[in-house]
Deep mutational scan, measured.
Amino acid sequence: RADKQHVLDMLFSAFEKHQYYNLKDLVDITKQPVVYLKEILKEIGVQNVKGIHKNTWELKPEYR
C-alpha cells in the first residue's frame, strides 16, 4: 500500500489523460487495494451512477 500522496499523484496524472475511469482501470494504474483506492477517490472524485458514464469515476470540479 503506497503513501497517500503518491497515490494522489498517480490519480491526478491519470485524470489528466482521461476524464472518466472505471475502478478496475484505476486499480491497474495505481496497483493499490480496492478499499484503500476508494477511500482516496471519495475525497477527490465522484462516482457516476447513471448515464453514459455509469460506474466510472471522475474528479470533482474543484480538482479538474
Rank of each mutant, 00 (worst) to 15 (best):
residue 1 R to A: 09
residue 1 R to K: 14
residue 2 A to D: 06
residue 2 A to I: 15
residue 3 D to W: 05
residue 3 D to K: 09
residue 3 D to A: 04
residue 3 D to Y: 10
residue 3 D to R: 09
residue 5 Q to Y: 08
residue 5 Q to R: 10
residue 5 Q to D: 14
residue 5 Q to M: 12
residue 5 Q to V: 11
residue 6 H to P: 08
residue 6 H to G: 15
residue 6 H to T: 15
residue 6 H to V: 15
residue 7 V to S: 02
residue 7 V to T: 11
residue 7 V to A: 06
residue 7 V to E: 01
residue 7 V to F: 02
residue 7 V to M: 08
residue 7 V to K: 01
residue 8 L to W: 06
residue 8 L to S: 04
residue 8 L to E: 08
residue 8 L to T: 08
residue 8 L to V: 10
residue 9 D to K: 15
residue 9 D to T: 10
residue 9 D to S: 11
residue 9 D to A: 08
residue 10 M to L: 12
residue 10 M to I: 10
residue 10 M to G: 03
residue 10 M to K: 08
residue 11 L to Q: 01
residue 12 F to K: 11
residue 12 F to S: 08
residue 13 S to M: 11
residue 13 S to R: 15
residue 14 A to R: 02
residue 14 A to W: 10
residue 14 A to Y: 05
residue 15 F to C: 02
residue 15 F to N: 00
residue 15 F to V: 01
residue 16 E to Q: 12
residue 16 E to N: 12
residue 16 E to M: 10
residue 16 E to W: 03
residue 16 E to L: 06
residue 17 K to G: 05
residue 17 K to Q: 06
residue 17 K to V: 07
residue 17 K to R: 12
residue 17 K to P: 01
residue 17 K to L: 06
residue 18 H to T: 07
residue 18 H to I: 05
residue 18 H to C: 08
residue 18 H to A: 13
residue 18 H to P: 01
residue 20 Y to G: 03
residue 20 Y to C: 10
residue 20 Y to S: 10
residue 21 Y to P: 04
residue 21 Y to D: 01
residue 21 Y to M: 10
residue 21 Y to Q: 10
residue 21 Y to L: 15
residue 21 Y to F: 07
residue 21 Y to C: 14
residue 22 N to L: 09
residue 22 N to M: 11
residue 23 L to R: 00
residue 23 L to Q: 05
residue 23 L to I: 06
residue 24 K to P: 10
residue 24 K to S: 13
residue 25 D to N: 07
residue 25 D to I: 03
residue 25 D to C: 04
residue 25 D to A: 10
residue 26 L to T: 00
residue 26 L to H: 00
residue 26 L to P: 01
residue 26 L to S: 00
residue 27 V to S: 09
residue 27 V to C: 12
residue 27 V to E: 09
residue 27 V to T: 08
residue 28 D to Y: 08
residue 28 D to M: 08
residue 28 D to R: 13
residue 28 D to N: 10
residue 28 D to F: 09
residue 28 D to T: 12
residue 29 I to E: 06
residue 29 I to D: 02
residue 29 I to T: 07
residue 29 I to Y: 11
residue 29 I to C: 05
residue 29 I to G: 02
residue 30 T to Q: 01
residue 30 T to G: 01
residue 30 T to I: 03
residue 30 T to E: 00
residue 31 K to P: 01
residue 31 K to D: 06
residue 32 Q to P: 00
residue 32 Q to A: 09
residue 32 Q to Y: 08
residue 34 V to T: 12
residue 34 V to R: 13
residue 34 V to H: 08
residue 34 V to E: 13
residue 34 V to D: 12
residue 35 V to K: 15
residue 35 V to T: 14
residue 35 V to W: 11
residue 35 V to H: 05
residue 35 V to Q: 12
residue 35 V to F: 07
residue 36 Y to P: 06
residue 36 Y to A: 10
residue 36 Y to G: 06
residue 37 L to I: 12
residue 37 L to R: 01
residue 37 L to S: 00
residue 37 L to V: 14
residue 38 K to R: 12
residue 38 K to V: 14
residue 38 K to W: 07
residue 38 K to L: 14
residue 39 E to R: 10
residue 39 E to G: 10
residue 39 E to A: 12
residue 39 E to Q: 11
residue 39 E to D: 08
residue 40 I to T: 05
residue 41 L to R: 00
residue 41 L to N: 00
residue 41 L to W: 00
residue 41 L to I: 04
residue 41 L to A: 00
residue 42 K to F: 05
residue 42 K to I: 08
residue 42 K to Q: 14
residue 43 E to Q: 10
residue 43 E to D: 09
residue 43 E to F: 03
residue 43 E to M: 04
residue 43 E to A: 04
residue 44 I to T: 01
residue 44 I to K: 01
residue 44 I to Y: 05
residue 44 I to A: 02
residue 44 I to R: 02
residue 45 G to H: 00
residue 45 G to C: 15
residue 45 G to I: 01
residue 46 V to C: 10
residue 46 V to L: 14
residue 47 Q to C: 13
residue 47 Q to Y: 11
residue 48 N to A: 11
residue 48 N to V: 13
residue 48 N to D: 13
residue 48 N to L: 06
residue 48 N to Y: 07
residue 48 N to F: 03
residue 49 V to H: 07
residue 49 V to S: 13
residue 49 V to W: 09
residue 49 V to R: 13
residue 50 K to M: 10
residue 50 K to L: 10
residue 50 K to I: 09
residue 51 G to Y: 01
residue 51 G to M: 05
residue 51 G to C: 04
residue 51 G to S: 07
residue 52 I to S: 12
residue 53 H to C: 07
residue 53 H to Y: 07
residue 53 H to T: 09
residue 53 H to R: 13
residue 53 H to L: 09
residue 54 K to F: 05
residue 54 K to S: 09
residue 54 K to M: 11
residue 54 K to Y: 06
residue 55 N to L: 04
residue 55 N to R: 07
residue 55 N to M: 07
residue 56 T to R: 11
residue 56 T to C: 14
residue 57 W to T: 02
residue 57 W to P: 03
residue 57 W to R: 03
residue 57 W to S: 03
residue 58 E to M: 14
residue 58 E to G: 14
residue 58 E to H: 08
residue 59 L to C: 02
residue 59 L to Y: 01
residue 59 L to M: 08
residue 59 L to F: 02
residue 60 K to T: 05
residue 60 K to L: 06
residue 60 K to N: 12
residue 60 K to R: 12
residue 60 K to Y: 01
residue 60 K to W: 01
residue 60 K to C: 03
residue 60 K to I: 02
residue 60 K to V: 02
residue 61 P to T: 12
residue 61 P to V: 05
residue 61 P to M: 08
residue 61 P to Q: 10
residue 62 E to R: 08
residue 63 Y to K: 07
residue 63 Y to F: 14
residue 63 Y to S: 06
residue 63 Y to V: 10
residue 64 R to Y: 06
residue 64 R to W: 08
residue 64 R to T: 15
residue 64 R to G: 08
